[in-house]
Amino acid sequence: MKVPAMIWVVAGFVGWAAAFGAIYGFHGIGCAYGWDAVPLGPTNLHRVVQVGAWLAFLPPLLLLALWLRCRRTQANEGGSTRWLALVGETTAWAGFAAAVITFAPTATTSVCV
């Protein structure tokens, strides 16, 4: 089935929202079950899960932005598909940047305090 071009306008931020839900969800579960008290290397299990989830979401978001860039360059010049792909590419890069910044506290702040 052909995916409507409109979907790509929101795809990047749908990815960001999915990352938000997962990372915030892991945070609540980890604090409830004491993952922060389980040592793992130089840190603890909870921080590894949090940072791991953050880093796991970045490559797909980056690939989405790059793929939309290819899609935009391949679309017909001046067509509405190209225009939607261009908006989609813009929001995909913004979604990627938002994911880098929003979840950076996983690496730096105290986990459950």
Partner: peptide, 24 residues
């Protein structure tokens, strides 16, 4: 539109939430 759904806790900073969640 999307970002506005990721900041609701800034109305609840004072209720006692861990720093990591406050950071998000």
């Amino acid at each position: 539109a999307f970002l506005s759904f990721g900041l609701w806790v800034h109305h609840m900073y004072a209720v006692g939430i861990p720093h990591m969640a406050l950071g998000f």
